[in-house]
């Protein structure tokens, strides 16, 4: 399949065929990660720059591993060491890096829309590794891969996304990805953490966890940032955990074949209890493994563009 777009900025802009193409590619690239020598020369001579304006361990490492397994040269720039601290603007930093002729920028930025804005001004391919509360497309694609491996497809599938939807880029990308693929999506959380007009994205909104668990084939639990308590969005983590924490008792309401996912990092004991995170329904580590494969597929696609 020929790809005309140079960037991967969000799931919203992806056609269903593009999503299927990435998933198929990821499934075939995944095999590389099981070889004794985990490297292919596909992106040899290509340069990938990871530019992370927000702390990240999992996503950055995952992209880095993916790029290196495809033999690309990678460079990592973290916010704390970058010239942002010295007062240089994001665009200036990017323009300077662009002058060194990289092929791909992998960008994580705390402001929604920052990678989109940059992509319009550079000829380098831009991969969005998470922007503000907007999108995290690689996470959504790895979630799709994980679900499809276990469930075989998305038709007639009910997926519940639970927790802090308002601040979650993962939730937005997952909603786009799952609805495009034909799944039924439920969002569940306290009204203070549900953004207005969420139904407009084609999801049903619930406030009580007990109402969604029995319906769901897939439960995606979101991380709760501790600072939400200070922002008057919650009375306490304790009450959140009581009302919205996924624990073994609640899992008794779930279908036998229900799967539990979490984009990480987890707050064990807040949104998810350890026995569920490590329990038989959990696919959390499968997600991480699939993350490398999906990011290999993404880098391959944009760098070959």
């Amino acid at each position: 399949m020929r790809r005309t777009k140079k960037d991967l900025l969000g799931v919203r802009e992806l056609e269903v065929e593009e999503i299927e193409h990435i998933l198929k590619l990821a499934a075939s690239l995944k095999e590389i990660n099981t070889r004794p020598i985990k490297k292919v020369p596909t992106l040899r001579g290509k340069t990938v720059v990871h530019l992370f304006y927000e702390p990240s361990t999992r996503t950055r490492t995952s992209f880095d591993v993916a790029a290196k397994r495809l033999s690309a040269d990678t460079y990592s720039i973290a916010a704390s060491s970058s010239s942002l601290v010295k007062g240089e603007t994001f665009l200036d930093t990017l323009k300077n890096l662009e002058a060194m002729s990289p092929d791909v920028f992998v960008i994580r930025h705390p402001v929604s829309g920052a990678p989109q804005r940059l992509a319009r001004r550079t000829s380098v391919s831009v991969v969005n590794a998470g922007d503000g509360m907007h999108e995290h497309p690689s996470q959504a694609l790895l979630d799709l891969l994980t679900i499809s491996e276990r469930k075989g497809g998305f038709k007639d599938l009910t997926v519940a996304i639970i927790g802090d939807i308002y601040h979650s880029r993962v939730a937005r990308s997952d909603i786009w990805a799952l609805t495009k693929m034909g799944a039924r999506v439920l969002a569940c959380g306290p009204p203070t953490l549900i953004p207005p007009h969420l139904e407009g994205l084609g999801v049903r909104v619930y406030w009580r966890l007990e109402d969604v668990i029995p319906q769901a084939d897939v439960l995606i639990v979101l991380r709760l940032q501790k600072e939400r308590q200070q922002q008057m969005l919650l009375p306490s983590l304790r009450e959140y955990s009581i009302c919205y924490g996924l624990n073994r008792r609640r899992m008794e309401l779930a279908r036998d074949d229900a799967i539990v996912m979490h984009p990480g990092p987890m707050n064990r004991g807040v949104e998810i209890s350890p026995d569920v995170a490590d329990g038989p329904h959990s696919l959390i580590l499968d997600q991480v493994a699939n993350g490398v494969a999906v990011r290999m597929a993404i880098l391959y696609m944009v760098a070959q563009g």
């Binding site: 919203r12 907007h134 969420l198 407009g200």
Partner: peptide
């Protein structure tokens, strides 16, 4: 503005 577009864009409304 807080509304559907702010939800879509992930911007605080």
């Amino acid at each position: 503005n807080e509304g559907f577009t702010s939800t879509l864009l992930g911007l605080r409304g």
